[in-house]
Write a protein that binds this DNA or RNA. Structure first.
Length: 166
DNA sequence: TTTATGATTGTTTAA
DNA sequence: TTAAACAATCATAAA
């Protein structure tokens, strides 16, 4: 019921309602987002901008980076839990419980991701410039995934920075 | 089969 | 500056 038209209505509603930001509005937002997102996955964009042929996705925030690990741990302790919301709630709670020092490593990682994101953005911008008239033929249907199995990204620059002095 | 949804917080972005 | 949108996950439900 909330889906479909809700996605548009929700967005508008929120705007008109102008409700507090930290009131955990969620729920509706994501619902709308999800709908749009899925749509964009197959189509193009959702709103704003014009069209992103291959716009880089936003880098995970420190919280998300932490969540990635937390999810694994959570699953280990709760192998029966299959709800994504469960991990989200638990992760969020823990995240708030963590200190800045604990989040530091996660933030560092997120920062790094962001760095790459900026780089991708540059390329993306360039592409837009190039695509000016050139209709980017999206042959994703054809290409899809060739699966070259070249996935070797063992470039793990490990930077162990244990800064616990405090 | 495929897409949407749910829940978390942080970052990003557009106006 | 502000408010909204979006980032991942994954099993399940609905169309």
């Amino acid at each position: 019921m909330k889906a479909t038209r809700s996605r548009a209505a929700a967005r508008k509603d929120n705007k008109e309602a102008v409700k507090p930001v930290e009131d955990r509005i969620i729920g509706k937002r994501k619902a709308a987002i999800r709908a749009d997102k899925s749509n964009k996955k197959r189509a193009k964009n959702v709103t704003s901008t014009k069209k992103d042929p291959n716009k880089p996705k936003r880098p995970p925030t420190a919280f998300f980076v932490f969540l990635e690990e937390f999810r694994i741990i959570y699953k280990q302790e709760h192998p029966k839990v299959k709800a994504v919301s469960a991990v989200g709630k638990a992760g969020g709670e823990k995240w708030k419980s963590m200190s800045d020092a604990e989040k530091a490593p996660y933030e560092a990682k997120a920062a790094k991701r962001k760095s790459e994101y900026e780089k991708l953005m540059e390329a993306y911008n360039k592409k837009q410039e190039s695509s000016d008239d050139e209709e980017e033929v999206e042959s994703e249907t054809s290409k899809s995934q060739v699966n070259d199995k070249d996935d070797e990204e063992s470039e793990e620059d490990e930077e162990e920075e244990d800064e616990d002095d405090d």
